[in-house]
Structure formats: structure tokens, C-alpha cells
Simulated assay, not measured.
Amino acid sequence: MSQQLYLPLGGVYPIPYEFETDTMPVPRGQFSILSELEDGNVTSAEAIVQLMLNHGSTWSSGLSWCLSTPYLSEIGGMSRRYVRDVLTSLDKKGWIETIKTSNPAGYRYRIQHYLCDEDQVPVDYNGKPLTFSMPRGPGGPLERCFGGEIPWKAALVWIVFKLRSEWRAGRDNTGQTWESTLLDLSKQCRMKLADFQEMIKILEQQGMLQRLTPKSKPAIFQLYPKPYPRPVSRSPNTSTSSTSTPPPSKETLEFDGEGYFDGTHYYSRNKLYRCSRETEIIEKRDGNQWSEISDFHRGQVMNPAILEYFKKCLEAKRVVESAVFKD
């Protein structure tokens, strides 16, 4: 039976961003900042500032761009003194390392994705650090916070909801939170219940969530923007940005010590990425589906060693083609 949609104030708030345009990885699981927030080891302000630094950093190294206290104060809607106190606390607890520079744009920070030894980092079934995808770009919770559309507490509530939701695309409940009481959810965010409820109202008014259950029952919310629907399989003659082909078998590949080549594509060692020899487009595999990666994914998520391998292969191809042309 489908759920009835209970709309606030008896009306319908506009949904300015129904689907996400890009995503960024956020650590989850034991030893992550959100896990420590739930356990009460960090404050809500410390959690959101660390997430802001994660937003402005390179995932592979954890090194942020130059970020000044006035800038963080402005985009976070906090006083400069409050931001300084939070950064000092995060530094003392080991969540960030402050790197002083002569750049007038501010210091750089190396963030700790998991506050534990390397061999204790929680991993997924592929052996990669445990993360979940959060919308980045238009409609993203941090972008809307930076733009002054929502307060930082509302952004944190949305992120905690995202962690406690079905984020896999193509499901009936995609983007819906798990059933829970508002009191339990407020404790997850380390906020007073009254403040938490006020943030819920703001998120509803901004079209970032809708409650799907009546107030007499545990809450289930629909989050916006939702994960973008997975593309459907198309015929070979139909133009599309993704293709459905199984991962290549060892019999069809040539291994050069760093990756593979099947005559048309270069593959990373784990066969998760491939680069077209003809178009030089890089794609990522999800099951049997190959989709072109975004510029953000290329620069912030993808392992730099894989990108360097593809560049080396393409450069070698150009050298060969140039020699043939001269002959």
C-alpha cells in the first residue's frame, strides 16, 4: 500500500531540485565524524565544520584548499570567534591538522576521514573506505547553506537524514529516511528537540524534504534532491551517455603491469574504470553499466594513479600515431 503524503500547513512547497547533479563522498561507519557525533564525542558545530572542510578538500589526500576563518564564518553563518574555537577543538581532538601558509586566502587543513589507525578504517565489499554519496552542486545541502538559504544546523540535519536513508537509485523508497521518532533523530544530530523541529520546518519550506507519515506515527521523510535515476538499457543505435556491457574477461585483455587494454579501451587494474582509446572519455563501472564520470569525480574522487595511467597510455598512443603520420 502506498504511503499518504502529509504536506506541511496543508499546502505544497516547491521542490527546486528534484534530482542531484553531482555527488561527493562522506565518510560513514565507525570512527567517522558522523559516528562520533551520534556517540556524543563531537558537537554538532564540530561535525558541520569538518564536513565543510571535507567539501573543500581533495579526497585522496584529505588536504583542503586555503580557507580563512572569515570565509568559513561567512559561508557557515557562524561568528569568526565561534569558527576559531571549533577549529581549535577539531585540531586538539585529531580531526584536522592545521597547515599554516603565507597565502592571504587562509590556512590549509588536512582532515582525518576516520579517527583511527589505518588498519581499523571501515571498508566496503570492494575494500574501499566506507562512504556514502551526498549531493554536491545545485541543491546540495552545503551549497544551500553557503548561499544563505538554510542555516548550518539544517544542513547537518539533512546530511544525518541522508546517512539514515535508502540512497540506492532505482528503488521505490529511494531517498526516503528510515522510520524513526523525532526525538531519536534529534539525538543523532546532538540538538535540542525544539531546535531540531525548527530545522525540519526550514527544510520543508526550502523543498528539501517532505514528511510521508502522520505526526502520530514514527517519521519517514522524502529527501530532495534524490539520487538520479539509473539510465535504462538502450539499443546500440540510440545515443546515450552510458553503456551496458559486462566487465572484460582476462582472455580479451592485455596486461602491461599497471592496467589492461582490449583494443578499444584502457582499463584500471581493478577494472572499475576505463578510458576510450578513440574519444579519451573516462567511464566508471556500476555492475554491467558504464557511465561517464564528472569533472568533480575525476579531480576529487578518482585515484590519481589511475588517471596518470590513462594519461600515459593516451600519450603513448599519440606518439605512435604521430610516427605513423610522418612515415
Rank of each mutant, 00 (worst) to 15 (best):
L7V: 15
L7Q: 15
P8H: 05
P14L: 12
I15K: 05
I15P: 00
I15V: 15
E18W: 05
F19H: 14
E20A: 15
T21I: 02
D22F: 00
D22L: 03
T23V: 13
M24Y: 00
V26C: 02
R28L: 12
Q30K: 14
Q30V: 08
S32W: 09
I33R: 00
I33A: 04
I33S: 05
L37D: 04
L37H: 01
E38K: 09
E38G: 08
D39K: 14
G40A: 08
G40F: 04
G40D: 10
T43R: 05
T43P: 03
S44H: 09
A45F: 09
E46Q: 15
E46D: 09
A47D: 09
A47H: 11
A47N: 10
A47E: 11
I48M: 12
I48Q: 02
I48A: 04
V49Q: 10
Q50T: 11
L51R: 04
M52D: 04
M52K: 01
N54E: 05
H55W: 11
H55K: 10
S57M: 05
W59M: 05
W59G: 00
S60Q: 11
S60G: 06
S61Y: 10
S61L: 13
G62P: 07
W65R: 05
S68K: 08
S68A: 12
T69W: 03
P70F: 08
Y71P: 00
Y71A: 15
L72S: 01
G76C: 13
G76Q: 02
G76Y: 04
G77L: 12
M78A: 13
S79I: 02
R80V: 02
R84L: 07
V86A: 08
L87E: 05
L87G: 01
L90N: 01
D91E: 15
K92G: 09
G94L: 13
W95D: 07
I96M: 11
T101E: 14
A105K: 15
A105Q: 13
G106R: 00
G106V: 00
Y107N: 15
R108H: 03
R108F: 02
R108P: 02
Y109E: 06
Y109S: 09
I111C: 03
